[in-house]
Nucleic acid binder design. Structure first.
Lengths: 122, 122
DNA sequence: GCCGCTATTCAGTGCTACTATCTAGTGGTA
DNA sequence: TACCACTAGATAGTAGCACTGAATAGCGGC
């Protein structure tokens, strides 16, 4: 991925992680690995941990320390009620944005329309 | 809109403006007004002008000064070949991201699936 | 004892949207 | 003339977020 994806992830990565936690609780290292498997190949631990700390401090997730057999204790995050509300707002914002962008995409794919609507807002 | 939308627009607003210019050349004040009409009610001129200067310095758009009857001369931007390539990359990145997010959305709407695939990557 | 894997933390950087303000040009009005 | 409203653009400073790079901690294998 490139610079465009980096900028696009601002704001959406948070929603992606929250949605992931809504499906199933998880810890940072695990989330990073899953994102990498799903094609977000550039995402590294540091990014995800910073995000998790942020949403924890905002009270969107609950945290539970679980001992690991393979290393230091894991911090398992799960979405709480407040996080659920926040995630719903995310879906609304995303839906609005996606709608506008898809609309533009369709306009570009169908060049035979009337796009210069001269007296629209005047 | 809220803080979520602000963050989400980082990276996507650029694509939105480029796509808008691909449909039809326009100047900053006009673009801002159109975005506002389309529901991006918080967007102000300053944001759009800064973005336009950025994409101009990257060589993604051509600029033409056109005198206006109502005020200072307009800087009319139009997408050039390089901008077209960049816009195509934007669609690819957007498509990838939208696909992942829609997938998560479907997972949350259909809670009867098997989501805990225990041995997927180990 | 050293390396590799798991797991988390943290300081610093770059990019972008936002805020607020300023300048410039035209036309209307008191 | 002086003032205001609308059009049109520029700019300095701020906040937020993903990224970089490094460090730390715990466990097992060589």
């Amino acid at each position: 991925m490139g610079k465009q994806m980096t900028e696009m992830l601002k704001g959406t990565l948070e929603g992606i992680v929250l949605a992931t936690l809504a499906v199933q609780p998880a810890y940072g290292y695990e989330i990073t690995a899953r994102l990498r498997e799903q094609g977000f190949s550039d995402i590294v631990e540091g990014t995800v941990y910073a995000l998790l700390i942020r949403i924890e401090q905002r009270g969107l997730v609950d945290v539970e320390k679980v001992p690991s057999e393979k290393g230091p204790p894991r911090k398992v995050y799960s979405l709480n009620a407040q996080g659920g509300d926040y995630l719903e707002e995310f879906w609304k914002s995303w839906g609005f944005l996606a709608e506008r962008i898809e609309q533009l995409h369709h306009q570009l794919e169908q060049p035979g329309h009337s796009n210069n609507t001269p007296n629209e807002g005047e």
